[in-house]
Design a binder for these strands. Structure first.
Length: 496
RNA sequence: GGCGCUAUCGUCUAGCGGCUAGGACGGGAGAUUCUCAAUCUCCAAACCGGGGUUCGAUUCCCCGUAGCGCUACCA
């Protein structure tokens, strides 16, 4: 097994396929690779596994880069970053895979297989039917082809693949850092394809060759790979290479226990960015899915996570992605952010909301609004969505609140209130509060009787920042206008 | 079907043979209050089942059950 010793800098890689967006499961795998590398002072490589021409999506690359950068997980080597072990796209390394396949061919560890797709499909169907207790998979038909037959087929340019010769029944064992010792019987494995007929390598070959050539010491990947690991071990053996250390991460599940997908909550990292989450919050949350530093620590900076991270403390059990807790955590990070740092993101959210021209010009005003909503929001999008009435008059009044606060007797109160507000000096939080409290006392009513209708009239909703700071920020003119409009609305409602 | 992985509150988890099984999210009750949020108290909530091993199992082993993964010229 691997000869890596604690103390020598490890080399790890995150190796996504550009087949779509980066989902949170992939992001967590990347994060654990990153944390592991940093913790041990090693290197974190990004490698693009684009060997499947059919599933390749060019936009996926940009999405992967953007997701990783947004989460604050820079790669030490890879696309854009460069490095001594490039190129970092497998599609640019095909010559190497071919020569390595040839090497195995020459050594008698692999063989050419000319079986057609039809034959393979038929074979599979037969096996399905007979429910073979054992021995499913390729029947090794071409393994017994004579040299002359192979030459003949080759001369006729017959399409073929290269398969690995799996040794007969013997144990293939490895030690997984998260799950312990795992052993497979090689009889369970079939002669897997190394090189496809289009000349591209399969995942298995490319992965092993690259991990070896790039000096990868630890393979930290999703646990869907666990059953492939014995095959990989056998490929390492065929080359007489030392395999790296393996650690398989548990999967992340949707709340219903099923697979995470776009339909079931969000799955894409960038979707979380778009819906108002902070990168440090998602990162912290992801770190805690399957890993815990011990004790009761939850909110941690990146540096603290790096210092505490060990694979031994990674859980083997699959974890459900609990978005409610993510929202809570996002709220915690939101409170810790400066108004200044929030401004660009919230502003771009506001910009998508069809506000009156020039509404977003006064930066001081914007900051004031963000300050009022930050403490009562969990997501950036909540700040943007709940503060719209700071940029345009409310279009409607929350029905339930209107029934409660816009009753007939409110008319008289508004009549008393509006002229006083119109000439209040100065127009400030404290003087407004004085005015309200004074009027309430004068009328012998609770201040709430004035406050709630005012809030609804001015904002259209029954919740929000403290009333007096809200009025001060809005300004006298706007407040009076909206109060008068509400008065008309109430009067109209009563007449009808 | 075969092979493999997994199993502590609803969820994320702590626990590494002896604990009233701890924390967090969420939920419930209350305090506070101009609303919401926040905050502060308190409450409910878990060791999948059965066998072993042991003086003693949540913890170690085996079996069962359940969930998941693999069983492609996809990764």
């Amino acid at each position: 097994m691997a000869d890596w010793k604690e103390g020598i800098p490890p080399v790890v890689r995150f190796a996504p396929s550009p087949t779509g967006y980066l989902h949170v499961g992939g992001a967590r795998t990347a994060l654990f690779n990153f944390l592991f590398a940093r913790h041990h002072g090693g290197r974190f490589i990004l490698r693009i596994e684009d060997t499947d021409q059919k599933r390749y999506q060019p936009e996926a690359l940009a999405e992967i880069y953007a997701s990783l950068k947004w989460l604050g997980l820079p790669w030490d080597e890879g696309p854009e970053a460069g490095g001594k072990d490039g190129p970092y796209f497998q599609s640019q390394r095909t010559a190497s895979y071919r020569s390595h396949a040839d090497q195995l061919l020459a050594a008698g560890k692999a063989y050419r297989c000319f079986c057609t797709e039809e034959r393979l499909t038929h074979l599979r169907e037969e096996q399905e039917k007979t429910k073979m207790a054992n021995g499913s998979g390729y029947d090794r038909h071409c393994r017994s082809l004579s040299e002359a037959e192979v030459e003949k087929l080759l001369a006729a340019a017959t399409p073929h693949v290269v398969r690995l010769k799996i040794p007969d029944a013997r144990a293939v064992a490895f030690h997984d850092l998260i799950r312990g010792d795992i052993a497979y019987d090689s009889a369970q494995l079939d002669d897997l394809v190394l090189l496809k007929s289009d000349g591209f390598p399969t995942y298995h070959l490319a992965n092993v060759v690259d991990d070896h050539l790039m000096g990868i010491t630890h393979v930290l990947r999703g646990d869907e790979w666990i059953a492939s690991t014995p095959k990989h071990i056998l490929i390492y053996e065929a080359f007489a290479w030392t395999p790296p250390v393996f650690a398989h991460m548990p999967v992340i599940l949707a709340p219903d226990g099923g697979k995470l997908s776009k339909r079931r909550g969000a799955a894409s990292v960038l979707d979380y960015q778009r819906s108002g989450f902070l990168p440090e919050a998602l990162r912290n949350f992801l770190a805690l899915l399957g890993w815990a530093p011990g004790g009761d620590r939850e909110i941690m900076t990146l540096d603290e996570m790096i210092a505490a991270f060990t694979l031994e403390r990674v859980q083997a059990k699959a974890a459900v992605f609990d978005e409610t807790k993510l929202e809570w955590m996002n709220g915690v990070y939101l409170q810790g952010r400066s108004i200044e740092s929030l401004l660009p993101d919230v502003r771009s959210l506001w910009e998508k909301m069809e506000l009156p021209a020039g509404a977003l010009e006064d930066e001081t005003y914007l900051k004031k609004v963000i300050a009022m909503f930050r403490e009562r929001s969990r997501k950036l999008s909540e700040i943007a969505e709940n503060s719209l009435y700071f940029f345009r008059d409310p279009r409607e009044y929350e029905p339930q609140a209107a029934r409660k606060h816009f009753k007939g007797e409110v008319l008289a109160l508004l009549d008393a209130l509006i002229p006083r507000i119109a000439k209040l000096e100065p127009f400030s939080h404290d003087s407004l509060e004085g005015l309200y409290r004074g009027l309430a006392e004068e009328k012998g009513i609770a201040a709430g009787k004035l406050i709630h209708p005012t809030r609804l009239a001015v904002s259209g909703v029954s919740f929000g920042p403290g009333l007096f700071e809200m009025l001060e920020a809005l300004g006298r003119e706007t407040v009076v206008r909206r109060l008068e409009r509400a008065r008309e609305h109430i009067a109209g409602g009563i007449k009808a």
